[in-house]
Amino acid sequence: MFGKIEGKTVLDIGCGSGHSLLYMGSRGASELWGMDLSSKQIEASKGVLAHQKASTYLFESPMEENPGIPHNYFDIVYSIYALGWTVDLSQTLQHINTYLKPGGTFIFSWEHPFHDRITYKDESFVLTKSYNKEGPEWNEAWHLEVLIYHRKLSTYVNTLIENGFMIEKIIDEVNPYEREPSEDPSKWYSSQKAEWIPSTFIIKSKKV
């Protein structure tokens, strides 16, 4: 979905350990930029990217703020399983739009918003939460008390459009991975569940 990466300036929102930026560098990106809320992840990224030929810039910051990232600068901004953590989706997308050059690409992935509405119970998958009710809630996938925002897929799409993006492609068809005979269907991610509902969605958009 990224197309040609060689010679492109890229920014990773929620860069984590830096391995996706390492991948971008291996594909010839000219500049590697990343931001993450965690100081430990930024330190990990510095180690992973220490020997990259491309210029590297890392920021410890919430995605709802601009820590000093230039405007109209990037060919590609992307976020891998991080954008959904934002507490203010519109503000975050406003910033991302300003970072991109006109016509620049923004791609992100996140857990499909139907995925945590479905639970395995009594040998069946049942709907246990309202898909339509949006807002912060305790996330069951974490064994700690973690609040995360539930948003409908249409909310992501409409908020992108409202903040100056044109949708180019949406993928929510994830092929179920091979099922192990002993696999527990009640696991958060299971092949049985993936046969009913995709675990992930990916959106590719362009700055208008």
Rank of each mutant, 00 (worst) to 15 (best):
K40Y: 11
S90F: 06
I167D: 04
T56Y: 04
H115W: 15
N97C: 14
V146P: 02
Y120D: 03
Q41L: 06
N139R: 10
M166F: 03
H51T: 12
S20K: 06
K129D: 15
W85D: 12
W142P: 00
K101A: 11
D36I: 08
F106G: 07
F114P: 00
H51K: 14
S154G: 01
Q94A: 10
K207R: 15
S191H: 04
Q41C: 08
S45Q: 06
N72F: 04
E140C: 06
Y131W: 06
G34Y: 07
T9H: 11
Q192K: 11
L147I: 02
D122C: 01
H19S: 13
L58I: 05
E6D: 12
E65K: 15
F108E: 07
S45T: 03
L100G: 10
Y99N: 02
H71A: 14
E43C: 02
P102D: 13
G14P: 10
Y189C: 06
H51N: 15
S30V: 09
G68D: 09
E123D: 15
E137V: 01
T92K: 10
H51P: 00
I202D: 00
G84W: 10
T155A: 01
E173I: 12
L11A: 05
S38K: 05
K8Y: 03
E168P: 00
A141C: 03
M35G: 04
Q41V: 00
L160H: 07
S186R: 07
D12K: 02
K207I: 08
F2H: 11
W196C: 10
E137H: 12
I203R: 02
S79W: 04
N163I: 06
T155Q: 04
G103R: 07
A194M: 15
Y177I: 08
E145I: 03
G14M: 08
L22C: 04
W110N: 15
T98W: 06
Q52G: 05
L58K: 07
S154F: 04
W110P: 00
T119N: 10
K40L: 08
I13M: 13
L100P: 07
I148W: 04
V87G: 08
E195V: 01
I170H: 03
L49Q: 08
Q91K: 15
Y156G: 02
N72A: 14
G34S: 08
W85Q: 08
K169T: 02
F2V: 02
I202E: 06
D172S: 09
E173D: 14
L144C: 03
A141N: 10
L83R: 07
G14F: 09
K40D: 15
W196P: 00
S190G: 05
E6I: 01
L127Y: 03
V174A: 01
S61I: 03
S20I: 06
I80E: 10
D116P: 01
P113A: 05
Y120H: 15
S130N: 11
G28Y: 03
G103I: 02
N139F: 11
N139P: 00
P102T: 14
I96C: 12
E137S: 14
G103F: 09
Y57E: 08
N72H: 12
I161V: 14
Y149N: 15
G3F: 07
K152E: 13
I203E: 02
E137C: 03
M24D: 04
D12P: 12
N163K: 11
E134N: 09
D172A: 05
I5G: 06
H19L: 13
Y156T: 01
S205Q: 01
C15G: 09
G7N: 13
F165D: 02
M63I: 13
S186Q: 04
K129M: 07
